[in-house]
């Protein structure tokens, strides 16, 4: 089933919208790791995975081609319209992050929505986002520091996007809020079997 019903479409775009709003509160988290990043800037990459979450949740809940990309793009356009400090760079980031997650599920032909695939999605999103940031923002950063930043990005993508996204989806399935969506139906089938 690749057809987007209205509810699939709405859930996808509203996940993007909800994260766009929640992200405004996430800025606070950077103050938590402030001492760390002041001493060592590439450590900022440790939180990178959080920004890929809309894509991951949309993919794991809606389970249809394009959901990850669309959700992340809505979140990106939203922060852009609200005045993100990266301007049009945010849109490209949305494309990279959503595209990375999308790619992982595409590789399974949208048949597997398991933790390892989610982690792969987080890693791919981190890789693409890092590539874009290196090109656009950190051209002059030395390759050794850039390499360390990549490591932080990959760890964060695997844990905060892949791992946390997968856990969050399970928590959402438990609430019953996704019963009319692919993730809820799969859980119901698993419970019956």
């Amino acid at each position: 089933m690749t057809r987007f019903r209205t509810v699939d479409l709405l859930v996808t775009v509203l996940i993007g919208g909800a994260f766009g709003v929640a992200f405004l509160g996430y800025g606070q988290l950077y103050t938590l790791i402030g001492p760390l990043t002041a001493a060592f800037k590439p450590a900022e990459g440790l939180l990178a995975g959080l920004w890929f979450l809309p894509a991951m949740l949309a993919a794991l809940i809606v389970r249809k081609p394009g959901a990850a990309l669309l959700a992340e793009l809505v979140a990106a356009v939203l922060s852009m319209l609200l005045g993100s400090q990266w301007g049009w760079g945010t849109a490209i980031s949305g494309l990279m992050q959503g595209g990375g997650v999308e790619l992982a599920f595409l590789l399974t032909r949208y048949r597997r929505f398991t933790l390892p695939v989610a982690i792969l999605g987080g890693v791919l999103a981190a890789l693409l986002e890092w590539g874009w940031e290196k090109f656009a923002y950190y051209q002059e950063m030395s390759w050794s520091f850039s390499g360390m930043m990549l490591v932080f990005f990959l760890i964060s993508g695997a844990l905060l996007c892949g791992g946390l996204g997968w856990v969050a989806t399970r928590a959402l399935v438990a609430t019953g809020a996704v019963d009319s969506l692919a993730a809820g139906r799969a859980a119901a089938r698993a419970a019956e079997a």
């Binding site: 479409l9 775009v13 509203l14 993007g16 919208g17 766009g20 709003v21 939203l78 319209l81």
Partner: peptide, 15 residues
């Protein structure tokens, strides 16, 4: 998708 995305952006205040 365009109409749905507009809806999501319009509902940001509500969210």
């Amino acid at each position: 998708p365009v109409a749905a995305a507009v809806l999501a952006l319009v509902r940001v205040g509500h969210l």
